[in-house]
Simulated assay, not measured.
Amino acid sequence: MTDPAPPSVWTRPRPEPRRRAPGVDQFVAAALAVADAEGLAAVSMRRVAADLGSGTASLYRYITNRDELLDLMVDAAQGEDPLPTAAADWRADLGAVAHGLRAALLRHPWLAGELTGRPSLGPNSLRRAESALRAAVALTPDMTLASQAVGLVRAYVLGSVAAQLAALRAEQRTGLSKEQWQHSMGPYVREVIAAGDHPMLARRVHEADEPEPDAEFAFGLDCVLDGLAARIGGQQE
């Protein structure tokens, strides 16, 4: 016989905080602060309790283990912004979903890794999923296709933000801004171009603009939405 699954952090009764002791919301907020400042690896039950001047046992009254703490952190991050207001236009609504997710990922760089595995099932996360699916069913009533459309938009946002955050980490690691790094690589790149073996790279260097991250994100999102309109929207006609 299979043992019954333990109660979820979302279904287990939450005890009231003891007098002057931090409650679960305070512990989760402290964990978010640690993750944002130092990365997810720095988050531990002991560290979070210590940052609040509390014993680890107090934290265990609410949260069974670190995995549950991460679940609560993800859901808290998902609940920071209001849900996008429905515009009754699938493109605008899915675009708002994308921009909202991007804003959350840029505020919390650790969040992307937690959103690429099993779905988060906390109340804020469920509300966001419901809002995204409602936007997508305005494009297609087929729930499989609508779900795939949401997944495609999320995948684009995750990839775009990952690239932006990687560039920021490179700046932090080297101490060089993008412009300083380009300047330092200038002599080498000029030698490569002068050799004549990479004509497309030469055109890229001499002719192409360098869009700001917001503009680059908006262009890619438009391409994704154009693709959904052509692939799915055309099937509904």
Rank of each mutant, 00 (worst) to 15 (best):
S54A: 15
F27H: 05
R20L: 08
L105Y: 02
L139N: 07
R91I: 01
L145V: 14
D142Q: 08
P123L: 11
S120M: 08
E38C: 02
H99D: 13
L126F: 02
L52S: 13
L106Q: 13
L145H: 02
D51S: 13
P123H: 06
V43I: 08
L32I: 14
D89E: 13
D25Y: 01
A136H: 09
R91P: 15
A112N: 02
Y60I: 08
A57T: 13
A57H: 05
A29D: 12
V97W: 04
E130M: 09
E114T: 03
A96V: 15
F27D: 00
G53R: 10
E68H: 06
A112K: 03
Y60M: 03
A129Q: 15
A88N: 15
W90Q: 08
M143W: 13
M45P: 03
E130G: 08
R134S: 13
L70P: 05
L52F: 14
P123R: 10
R118F: 07
P82V: 08
A33N: 12
L133M: 15
N65K: 10
A135E: 12
A31G: 14
L59Y: 04
F27I: 14
A92N: 03
A86D: 15
R91V: 01
P109R: 01
G100M: 00
D25K: 06
L59C: 04
L106P: 04
A146F: 01
A136N: 06
L52G: 02
T56K: 12
A77L: 02
V34Q: 04
T56W: 05
R66W: 02
A92L: 14
P22D: 08
S125K: 00
A29P: 00
M143K: 14
W110C: 07
R134H: 13
T144C: 00
I63G: 04
P22Y: 02
W90M: 01
M45F: 05
P141E: 11
V48S: 10
A136W: 07
P84V: 13
Q26W: 00
L121C: 12
Q148L: 14
T85V: 15
G53A: 03
E80H: 03
P84T: 07
S120I: 15
V43A: 01
A103E: 12
M73A: 04
D36K: 12
G95F: 01
R107I: 11
L59S: 00
P84D: 12
S120Y: 10
A96L: 03
G23I: 09
R19S: 11
L133E: 11
R46Q: 04
L139S: 05
D25H: 13
G23V: 06
Q26M: 01
P84C: 12
G95A: 06
R91S: 11
H108A: 06
F27P: 01
L105H: 05
H99Y: 01
Q26V: 05
V137E: 15
N124Y: 04
A41Q: 12
D36P: 02
F27K: 07
A31L: 10
V74D: 08
L72S: 06
G55E: 13
P84F: 05
D36I: 04
L40S: 02
S58C: 05
L52N: 11
E114L: 15
D89N: 11
A41W: 09
A76V: 03
L72H: 10
P22N: 00
H108I: 05
R127C: 07
H99C: 05
A33V: 11
V137F: 11
L139G: 04
T85R: 10
